[in-house]
Design a protein around this nucleic acid. Structure first.
Length: 460
RNA sequence: GGUGGGAUAGCGAAGUGGCCCAACGCGCCUGCCUUGAGAGCAGGUGUCCUCACGGACCCCUGGGUUCAAAUCCCAGUCCCACCGCCA
């Protein structure tokens, strides 16, 4: 959330941010009008209340002095003031609520270094890593959803049966590989001074508002014990769409000590996203699902350090891909593609050679976003009441929050299943993961189970 | 789930209708004093409106009673203790 004062004083900047981020339904002029009217009523209400306070204290004195008649007249005057005050303040409260609602829907202002652009085609590629000596030719690679089925380590049909489309079973060596990845990520980040937290999975509406999921993106999250369209209040629960929500809100409405900063937390959790209308050939398989695992990195820092920290956080997130030997690239996200809450954002995209897509690299294959690394400046901190007390100032200030995925597990699974695929249809376990797999070097798969396997000719 | 206790400024803590524009202590900031530090003394230390003067608000949240609420009433949230149930 932006400061009211900031919006008042920089309407052009705010209008510009709304437009460049492609946010609809926000009318800055209307917000300014509401603010203007509210301030007028506020000052009238203050005046009335001041008068009432004076009359009220007179009543006390008059009664003490035994001047009953005058006291009675003052009481009547006070009642008149009360009625008028109520009228003025009711309207002022309405306007303030409205103002607050509107401000929650105003996006964060992009940092000056962010490239202007409309959509993903305007993002700027900063660099690529790991493309010098590729171990596969994309022409020979089987997509992960096919090889996952052949090895019987990914099962989307049974996931859909048990929970619905977009849910899956990961089985046998696949499940083991996924667990190894999680453990590996956590270990790498622990050495980068991250303190791990295991967060609650359901989070309340106040938390969702703190990180910026609510009110604008209610339709993207799963609700607990309520219908999707039902009204919600602060205490209602949602399934976390990312561990960013519980972890960023962990210190909500608190004041941290200057010495505490920077605070670096990592959290492993499943993530739940409705992903309405996002299904199609581009998202086939383990690429865009309703439930997936992720290790999330969250930083709380002093405002003056946040951009240095953003660069360092990018390095921390990409380290896991480097150690897995997976080729990837880093994008500087443009204004139109960066999202509502971010002031600046980098995306890390891993190379998945299995499906050849138009917007993939020249060698073939496709890019898969596995991490986005963002600086929110004080946007989340203001919504969530996250403050710290600088050493030489008397009052608390909003700190800056950053986060980065470290990283989304399923898409790394996809990249491994495709990039580390062998000619015989097996998958080599990346060296960095072998110690997490009891030394296992190759995934050879499992015999499918059930009569459907016989029908498909996979089993006798 | 039950019973009881609690929530007051950055922290600790007093305050049971008008003398509370919330005592006191600690921390922090500014000034005085000092060669410097410390001690001491004075002022300050949340939010909002106002160019300013100044004013309004803030005692967990939301309602209510009253001319007047930190204080009384109702509902809720969270914390603590004990009891019950439970992996």
């Amino acid at each position: 959330m932006l400061r009211r004062q900031f919006v008042r004083e920089n309407p052009e900047t705010v209008r510009d941010a709304v437009e460049r981020k492609g946010v609809t339904g926000v009318d800055v002029d209307e917000i300014l009008e509401i603010d203007e009217e509210w301030r007028e009523l506020k000052s009238r209400g203050d005046g009335l209340r001041h008068e009432r306070n004076e009359v009220s204290s007179d009543i006390g004195e008059l009664k003490q002095a035994g001047k009953e008649e005058e006291a009675q007249a003052a009481i009547e005057r006070s009642q008149e003031l009360k009625a008028e005050l109520q009228r003025v303040e009711e309207r002022a409260d309405e306007l303030e609520d409205e103002l607050e609602q509107r401000l929650l829907e105003v996006p964060n202002v992009p940092h000056e270094s962010v490239p202007t652009g409309e959509d993903e085609s305007d993002n700027v590629e900063r660099y690529r890593e790991g493309f010098d000596d590729l171990r596969v030719d994309p022409a020979d690679v089987t997509p992960h959803y096919d090889i996952g089925e052949e090895l019987d380590i990914l099962d989307f049909e049974r996931g859909a049966k048990v929970s619905g489309g977009g849910f899956q079973f990961v089985k046998g060596d696949g499940a083991k590989l996924e667990r190894a990845l999680i453990q590996f990520f956590l270990d790498v980040h622990e050495k980068q001074d991250y303190v791990e937290v295991a967060p609650p999975i359901p989070v309340n509406s106040a938390s969702m508002r703190g990180t910026g999921q609510l009110p604008k993106f209610a339709a993207d999250a799963y609700r607990v014990s309520a219908r999707q369209a039902d009204d919600y209040d602060d205490d209602d629960l949602w399934l976390l769409p990312t561990a960013e929500v519980p972890v960023t809100n962990m210190y909500r409405d608190e004041i941290l000590l200057d010495d505490d900063l920077p605070v670096k937390h990592q959290a492993f959790s499943p993530n739940f996203r409705r992903e309405a209308g996002e299904h199609g050939t581009e998202t086939r398989g383990y690429v865009r699902v309703h439930q997936f695992n992720k290790v999330e990195l969250v930083n709380f820092v002093r405002p003056e350090n946040s951009y240095d920290r953003l660069e360092a956080l990018l390095g921390e997130a990409e380290e896991v891909l480097g150690r897995l030997g997976l080729p990837y690239r880093v994008l500087d996200m443009c204004t139109g593609d960066m999202g509502f809450t971010q002031a600046k954002k980098y995306d890390i995209e891993v190379w998945a050679p299995g499906d050849d897509m138009d917007d993939g690299p020249d060698v073939g294959g496709r890019w898969l976003e596995v991490s986005s690394v963002s600086n929110f400046e004080d946007f989340q901190a203001r919504r969530a009441g996250l403050r710290y007390r600088p050493e030489r100032h008397e009052s608390a200030e909003y700190l800056h929050t950053l986060n980065g995925s470290g990283v989304a597990v399923p898409r790394v699974m996809v990249a491994i299943m495709e990039y580390y695929q062998n000619d015989d249809g097996t998958v080599t376990v990346p060296e960095a993961l072998q110690s997490y797999m009891d030394g296992q070097e190759v995934i050879e798969g499992h015999e499918p189970i059930g009569e459907s396997a016989v029908g498909a000719g996979d089993k006798e």
